[in-house]
């Protein structure tokens, strides 16, 4: 058996992810896809379209809107949802703040990152979701390196990393007690570079924020942050115009930009291939301690 049956690693990853997505649709009553508007969830949406073609994607998209999103992200989201013909459910952090159910962090590094968790958990309870598909990858962060494809969450949405279900072969066990649910990660085995190479190969449309553009920015603690009304400036800080692009898209207040001239996907791939820092290195939320991600995941974070 020779060359004609060889698959590239992207083909293998694609096949694995499509298998995972179909398994979710088959095993759960109320599955959903957590859509952040970032490149990883866009790739998941693309894979879901492939997995169920010619039928529509048989599950709704859920977006947790912090109110601090890039406007480009929201426009992109609405456009994609319409093209795919899927239902969009928005969980609003602003609503929770207005109702007094959560309070905002104060200070210069204030972010709404941690209060996304109650909004997400609230949306899961309100809609009775028993599975939430996310775009997280094991290569992103140390705690995520131990994630399963089907990751069990108890009725408080908590992750217990010391007591995960064994996951053998591709036999995913999605059985659960009432009130419990699963987070599912079809991109577990992808790296940042795989995602970019796949976007290039499949010519997947992504928000303009991923490409080099001129933007008013603020330098803080070795990071470049986008200037916006949501960012509290220290007296000594000044905004400046820079040529930047983003490697991940989170909230305006925490997502670090990199200086770059990459204007096409090819140029971005070249940059990522030689990058010397991880993409989450620009995320202020992960820089709050060695196990910041594990701690947030235990509480029910993405």
């Amino acid at each position: 058996m020779s060359g004609e049956y060889n698959l590239s690693h992207l083909d293998e990853l694609e096949a694995e992810s499509m298998y995972v997505l179909r398994e979710v649709a088959a095993q759960f009553d109320r599955p959903s896809l957590l859509f952040s508007g970032g490149k990883d969830s866009i790739v998941v949406a693309h894979l879901a379209r492939k997995a169920f073609f010619p039928a529509r994607i048989p599950l709704p998209f859920v977006h947790i809107d912090t109110g601090h999103n890039f406007p480009e992200t929201i426009a992109f989201r609405d456009d994609l949802v319409e093209k795919l013909g899927v239902q969009l459910i928005v969980g609003s952090v602003q609503t929770l703040i207005d109702r007094g159910e959560v309070s905002e962090e104060k200070g210069f590094n204030a972010s709404r990152n941690s209060i996304q968790t109650p909004a997400l958990v609230g949306a899961i309870e309100e809609h009775g979701f028993d599975a939430c598909i996310g775009g997280a990858r094991r290569d992103e962060e140390k705690a995520r390196a131990k994630e399963r494809f089907f990751s069990h969450r108890d009725e408080f949405s908590s992750w217990d990393p010391k007591n995960q279900r064994p996951e053998l072969w591709q036999l995913f066990n999605g059985k659960h007690q009432p009130g419990e649910h699963f987070r599912v990660f079809p991109l577990n085995n992808w790296t940042e570079l795989d995602v970019w190479n796949y976007i290039l190969r499949e010519q997947i449309e992504i928000p303009s924020l991923y490409f080099s553009h001129k933007r008013k920015c603020v330098r803080r603690a070795g990071q470049i942050l986008a200037f916006s009304e949501h960012l509290n400036l220290r007296p000594e800080e000044k905004s400046e115009m820079l040529c930047v692009r983003f490697r991940t898209l989170g909230d305006l207040t925490i997502t670090g930009a990199v200086e770059s001239n990459a204007e096409t996907i090819e140029q971005v791939v070249d940059e990522v291939a030689v990058a010397r820092n991880t993409e989450r290195g620009g995320r202020m939320d992960d820089r709050r301690g060695e196990t910041a991600m594990e701690d947030r995941k235990k509480e029910g974070y993405f």
């Binding site: 094991r138 290569d139 962060e141 140390k142 705690a143 390196a145 131990k146 990393p161 010391k162 995960q164 577990n188 085995n189 060695e290 196990t291 594990e294 701690d295």
Partner: peptide, 17 residues
């Protein structure tokens, strides 16, 4: 990567690299 692993200096779950 996990807190317990760092504290005890052992690996307690399969990690993927």
């Amino acid at each position: 990567g996990l807190r317990a692993e760092r504290e005890q200096g052992i690996t307690i779950d399969v990690a993927y690299r």
